[in-house]
Design a protein around this nucleic acid. Structure first.
Lengths: 193, 193
DNA sequence: CGATTTTTTGAATCATATCAACGTACGTGG
DNA sequence: CCACGTACGTTGATATGATTCAAAAAATCG
């Protein structure tokens, strides 16, 4: 259950046996069935979740009732509303499972405990944030300067595994285009080029 | 010269006199005249810079030769190509001064020294990244779901000081819209509403 | 000042959204 | 394991917000 998490942390910082034992006591395992919510808008995002198995998404719903997918998460990814997690403010986001999922969750108190007992964990978190920073910058760049087709091409290039696991209209939502536009962009690639 | 930096760091973590003295030895002061580059595409982004005075921007240039402003930075902000800074890869970005500026720069080696000697600095960096995360998420949301006018309204709401200091066409570039569109959006606000 | 840069305005064009309809795949309960 | 209902993807016609190109007006700078 914890192997994948330890592998992930261990790839960023030094993690010994004692560290692992300690970490085991800090995370809460949780299973989620497909379509189940991990977080709903208005709740406080008390947990950040490491995905041990399965696929989830986070999304917001705008005034017109449209869903905007913020993030997908598959094995070895973290998901949660970082802002709500850190500030305690109610979340603007929903998170639910696109496939049955196994999670390892941590709350703020436990994370602070880890940071006290395992100082290198600070570095682990920083690295995660740095990676996220780079990925988000890339996404922003795509959103600002690319056509619908280019956005899609970059998505399948960067996340080939996700492309295969989530419905196409959710990819469209992630890319900020309509399902119709995505459908047409894909068609063009195959035929006219 | 260092007051603003110490104030900023001191607002996030505990910083004593010895810490300040140590930090002074790690940062490189630099003055930049308006239009001068801090970083040019292709160079390695060896420094992250804290803005003590002035105004800068970072931007990329796409295949069609168009500028896309990634970030503005005024007093108490950090600017630099984080990715290039961390990885040593050549940068895709340019950074230049929109006003004469005073900077405090740090290279990777010095930052690592700080992290060794002043462990709380790890927390400081994490907090910066977290704040950046939240701001970028907001921007992404605006890019994906908002009209040109809404993007502009959110910008002046979030960055009223910047609005007044940078030319309008650069705000347009930051928002991912054309100067003409921004001009029209502003006009509509005043007249027709 | 004159020269450059910036902003505004207008008209034509373009990419994407919208609305609607249809075919297909899918999973779920009988 | 089949059949039905819902969800999903595709296609077409039209609408719309933003871009593009051009040029004038306004502001800024040396």
């Amino acid at each position: 259950m914890y192997d994948l998490l330890f592998h992930h942390i261990g790839s960023k910082i030094l993690l010994d046996g004692a560290g692992k034992e300690f970490l085991k006591t800090m995370f809460i395992p949780k299973k989620l069935r497909k379509k189940q919510y991990l977080l709903q808008e208005g709740e406080q995002g008390k947990y950040m979740a490491f995905v041990n198995k399965g696929c989830l998404r986070s999304y917001s719903i705008d005034e017109e009732g449209r869903e905007h997918i913020v993030q997908f998460a598959i094995e070895e990814w973290w998901i949660g509303d970082m802002y709500s997690f850190l500030t305690g403010e109610p979340s603007d986001y929903n998170i639910d499972a696109l496939e049955d999922a196994e999670l390892l969750m941590i709350d703020r108190k436990a994370q602070n405990s880890i940071l006290e007992h395992l100082p290198a964990y600070e570095k682990y978190l920083r690295i995660l944030l740095e990676n996220n920073y780079v990925a988000t910058r890339r996404r922003l760049n795509n959103m600002m300067a690319k056509t619908a087709e280019e956005k899609y091409l970059d998505f399948i290039k960067q996340y080939p595994h996700i492309t295969q696991r989530v419905p196409q209209h959710m990819v469209a939502s992630y890319l900020g285009i309509t399902p119709e536009t995505l459908s047409r962009a894909r068609k063009q690639r195959l035929t006219g080029k």
